[in-house]
Amino acid sequence: MDFKTGPTAKKWYPVYTQPRAEKKAHQALITKNIEAYLPLHRQLKQWSDRKKWVEEPFIKSYIFVNIAPHEQADVLMTKGIARFLYFSGKPATMPTRQITELKLLMASPYELEVTEENLQPGEKIVIKAGPLKGMTGEVISHKSQKQLILRLESIGHSIIVNAMASYIERF
């Protein structure tokens, strides 16, 4: 839980990176002993002469850092970091629970997709079985399948997860 307050309390902040600099910026933050999380997913890339599985950033141009407010300058002075995201004039923060859920999603066997489209709110649901048990979200109809939407409002993205209807319960 995020109960600590004050100048030394650490919070998760989404930071925006320069284009295609996520991995190098993440490594530079780790080298500075700054706790950072870069969600990666495996993707099959095709070139003219070969195919290869590569790890790509799940949310392009974003890294999440767990820092105290006085460490913001250290993050901004890291090569590849462009800026913090702001909400109502303050750097946006994310609850630890959302980072934990994002890590859980990345480790799950579900097929994941990120979208920036503004999805309309639907029924509120909770997943009642499987590795995502207890996670909440909204249901939409897409490609004639039921899908769970986990909205990460603080970064303006939504995550779509294919979930079996039997795993979903309305609340």
Rank of each mutant, 00 (worst) to 15 (best):
R20C: 14
E22C: 12
K24I: 10
K24R: 09
K24M: 10
H26P: 02
H26C: 13
L29F: 04
L29A: 01
L29I: 04
T31A: 13
T31M: 13
K32T: 06
N33Q: 06
I34K: 04
A36N: 00
Y37V: 00
L38F: 03
H41A: 07
R42K: 13
R42I: 15
R42W: 02
K45I: 12
K45L: 12
W47V: 08
W53G: 12
W53T: 15
W53M: 12
W53R: 15
V54N: 10
E55T: 04
F58I: 06
K60E: 10
Y62T: 01
Y62A: 01
F64G: 01
V65W: 05
N66L: 03
A68C: 09
V75R: 01
K79W: 04
G80C: 12
R83D: 09
L85D: 02
L85Q: 05
Y86E: 09
Y86H: 04
G89H: 00
G89M: 05
K90W: 04
P91R: 05
T93H: 07
T93K: 09
T96L: 07
Q98W: 07
I99A: 00
L102D: 10
K103E: 04
L104I: 15
L105I: 13
M106S: 03
M106Y: 01
A107F: 15
E111T: 11
L112Y: 10
L119V: 13
P121Q: 10
P121K: 15
G122K: 14
E123A: 05
E123T: 11
K124M: 12
I125Q: 03
V126C: 07
I127P: 06
I127Q: 09
I127Y: 03
K128P: 00
G130P: 14
G130V: 11
K133G: 07
K133T: 11
M135H: 08
M135T: 15
G137W: 06
I140N: 03
S141T: 14
H142P: 09
S144D: 12
L148A: 08
I149S: 02
R151Y: 13
L152A: 02
I155V: 08
H157R: 14
I159T: 08
I160M: 06
V161R: 10
V161W: 04
N162D: 12
M164E: 10
A165N: 03
S166T: 12
Y167R: 15
